[in-house]
Design a protein around this nucleic acid. Structure first.
Length: 232
DNA sequence: GTCCAGGGCCTAC
DNA sequence: GTAGGCCATGGA
């Protein structure tokens, strides 16, 4: 099946089954950004422990990260793993925001998507997934986030070949799910929903040992089961 | 004790 | 351009 059509069918089926997700579990745009750094290659629960530490210490804000000494920041984010790197990256992001946008997330997110994405990718510790999570979930920019679950599901269900480049996978999902020509926010809402569903299904059914047989994608689209690749 | 998790950087070839 | 080592914690 045409991968674009396959993605759209999975999207419709999962949305029918699970409803709207209205996602990224964070209270503010800045929390989204901090969360994007803290959860890098780390179990989400560990990232949450670190976020809780920051909140409890009342430094889960732009001003908070700006003023806290790095060694103290390191201790607070320790549960998230790679704590020295992550503390340094949070400091570097705030410094970037202050320098380039006068400390204003509003001003930063008001930039056009493509140049802003390029700018974020220049920052230490911001690779494609982190930049796209910041853009989509923090700034409602119409960018699809390709994470480990997205890749795993795309590969195992025959949507894309193994080892497809990040940006190729991203464009595949964007082109499949985009609505209209302009980025008026409606595409962003769909990308948000689609990625949230992928994580929902991925967490439950697409871990290392799990095969996609019996996973919701196949349960709700039984005719697709023939194409299911049952090995990781 | 071992394996793994919603990356990214750096170096070598 | 890509393969491999490195960064680190907490839960299963």
């Amino acid at each position: 099946m045409n991968p674009h059509a396959q993605i759209r069918r999975y999207y419709r089926a999962l949305t029918r089954a699970y409803g709207p997700q209205s996602w990224w579990p964070a209270r503010t745009r800045f929390e989204v950004i901090v969360g994007a750094f803290l959860t890098q290659n780390t179990a989400w629960t560990n990232g949450e422990l670190a976020l809780r530490n920051l909140r409890r210490a009342r430094v889960l804000s732009l001003e908070g990260i700006r003023r806290i000494p790095q060694p103290e920041l390191e201790q607070l984010v320790r549960p998230a793993g790679y704590f020295r790197q992550k503390a340094r990256r949070l400091k570097a992001f705030v410094e970037f925001l202050d320098t380039a946008y006068g400390g204003s997330l509003g001003r930063m997110f008001a930039q056009p998507t493509v140049p802003l994405r390029e700018q974020l990718l220049q920052l230490n510790g911001v690779g494609p997934e982190t930049s796209d999570a910041i853009l989509l979930y923090g700034g409602k920019h119409a960018v699809f986030v390709v994470d480990a679950y997205t890749r795993r599901i795309a590969e195992r269900h025959g949507i894309a070949p193994f080892a497809t480049q990040y940006d190729d996978l991203r464009r595949l999902f964007e082109d499949s799910l985009r609505v209209g020509e302009t980025s008026d926010g409606s595409s962003a809402a769909i990308f948000n929903q689609a990625h949230a569903l992928i994580v929902l299904v991925g967490k439950e059914h697409c871990r290392k040992q799990a095969c996609c047989r019996g996973c919701p994608l196949e349960r709700y689209l039984p005719q697709e089961a023939e194409d299911c690749i049952s090995t990781a």
